[in-house]
Design a protein around this nucleic acid. Structure first.
Lengths: 164, 164
DNA sequence: ACAGTTAGGTTCGTCAAGTGAACTCAGGAG
DNA sequence: CTCCTGAGTTCACTTGACGAACCTAACTGT
């Protein structure tokens, strides 16, 4: 039925999860976005086991998401710190998406963190938009199109879900 | 230094990952968005071990992200299928974010899947926007503001004072 | 010179989680 | 009554996470 609707093995969701889907990876990146750079700070603030943290940082560097930068505090030897690359910074929407979902569906109070536009101070959120400028309100307004096979069934089942 | 900048333990990123961060969970949801509903279809299309799949489906149901719906194919007994709830459908931006990152950073060719606006056919993507309508181009235009419980209380009492 | 401290790890034993094959169970088909 | 099929469960095995302990190089105080 939904036999080879499209090639799942080349799906970018799976690919991305293979890179940042392990435990702690995305939390390490969350902290990186908040300016954490040094091993001990990651360790203290996350509470992750050092062995795991060491491994995650290594694979994130290997993947080009973080880069090691030598630095030297006064009266200390040279050490390495971890900074986001452009590739890493592009994961920001992913973290915002996770945060937004948690804020609206796991809330036991006000969201613990609000994102504001640096320039105007207004709250920031993610939106699905098309290149014609329309704002979409959810998945049911999207038609996924595989390379060679268009498929109307998908839209159909989603519409059914929405009704039920 | 970055001591208690804000309370990480209540962070929605961590909360969301606690719910959908296990292996296979987000891939199950990806398939759900493509209209997959039945156990055997998930199993065949993902290649996940049945035991894990069974567990992931159960916790997603438990969390209110999927719901079990009885159905009956002709000439078969009644069975259960899994459908997205509203809470589940709200995870769509997360999957789109993961997909977009993979498309731009793991590409070994054209993206295997394109999302089009149902109405106008234009390609769809995620954008960070603020409530004043500005489009932000990345994390550096965002200022995270901790909404500490104390701040919330203060705001609340101030609001009360204003009324009295 | 020498012990102590600190950042940034590694090693190790234990315990939880993922994996694939085999088994179960309920009902319809032949 | 037996076989088949969808939807799981059970089991033995391997991989991954965990926390405590240990290691190392540079610098610091004595």
């Amino acid at each position: 039925m939904s036999e080879a609707l499209w090639d799942r093995s080349r799906c970018s969701v799976a690919g991305t999860l293979a890179v940042v889907g392990e435990k702690w990876s995305l939390l390490v990146l969350r902290e990186a976005f908040f300016g954490v750079r040094r091993f001990a700070d990651f360790q203290r603030v996350l509470g992750a086991p050092k062995a795991v943290l060491s491994d995650r940082l290594a694979t994130l560097v290997e993947q080009g998401i973080l880069r090691r930068v030598p630095y030297q505090a006064e009266g200390e030897r040279q050490r390495q710190e971890y900074r986001l690359t452009t590739k890493g910074r592009d994961l920001y929407p992913t973290l915002v998406a996770l945060m937004q979902w948690g804020d609206t569906h796991l809330a036991d109070g006000p969201p613990p963190l609000e994102l504001q536009h640096q320039d105007c101070g207004a709250p920031v959120h993610l939106e699905l938009v098309c290149e014609a400028g329309h704002r979409l309100s959810g998945a049911w307004e999207v038609r996924p199109v595989a390379q060679s096979r268009a498929n109307a069934l998908v839209a159909h089942t989603l519409a059914e879900d929405a009704k039920a």
